[in-house]
Amino acid sequence: MVRTPAPLRWLLRVVTIGYLFMLIAWPVSLVVRTTFEGGLANLQTALSDPEVVHALQMTGIVAGVAVVANLLFGVGISLLLVRYEFPGKRVLSTLIDVPLSVSPVVVGLALLLVYNSRDGWLGRPLDAAGLQVIFATPGMVMATVFVALPLVIREVVPVLEEVGDEQEQAARSLGANGVQTFWRVTLPSIKWAVVYGVVLSLARSLGEFGAVKIVSGNVVEKTQTTTLVVEQTYQNFEQGTAYAAAFLLAFASVLCIVIVSILRPKDPA
């Protein structure tokens, strides 16, 4: 292996650590410090504000439903992509990744165009049937599902490919039907990948902002999520509340990531 000369090694260390410190570590620690400047006062103010409480509930509901939807869809589509052959498979597997790089704002606009109840292709008939999508919970869930869509799939597909299908064939030759094979053999072998996918989806769903902002209409105590409350309170100069709400979000998301890094075995068998 190439030996980095000592001065260069030190230079690289100082530059990278300095960069990460200035860009990430210091600013993040400042937010934590500001949040707890007056002890727990900021958090207490925030948690006694009905707008904040409602928004936290809203975030919980939307993120919860979105994660379940992405779990079911993600595991199903991963199995189809890895274990079956069908026309258009390559295109589908590429399209699945598109939500990762599409702007949340474009996601919001796209859903708005199709599902608005005034002239949306699908929004009008749905509205006539009594289901309001845009400016309501269904739209917010859809936006959140959209942005987090590939996360479970990206974790599960490589593991499914790596595990191969011999264990499944063995289970079938031993008399297990499809459902038994899935629960007893397939799922246990992709268990950790599914857990990581879910946790990453949860972190992403909790933090979604742009797409939800467009489709929710941002109505206080109705369709406002926590991220939207952070924006609103900050702009209304309620900085304490903004920092507290931001801290709660950041804490939950970072906790997700830390849990994953602790859970993830060095070499997932």
Binding site: M22, W26, P27, V28, L30, V31, T34, P104, A203, L206, G207, E208, F209, G210, T227, V230, E231, Y234, A242, Y243, A246, L249, A250, S253, V254, C256, I257
Partner: peptide, 14 residues
């Protein structure tokens, strides 16, 4: 991991 809106807030702090 950080929600983007929080990222903005974080950078504003420094």
């Amino acid at each position: 991991a950080l929600p983007t809106i929080v990222a903005g807030l974080v950078l504003l702090a420094l």
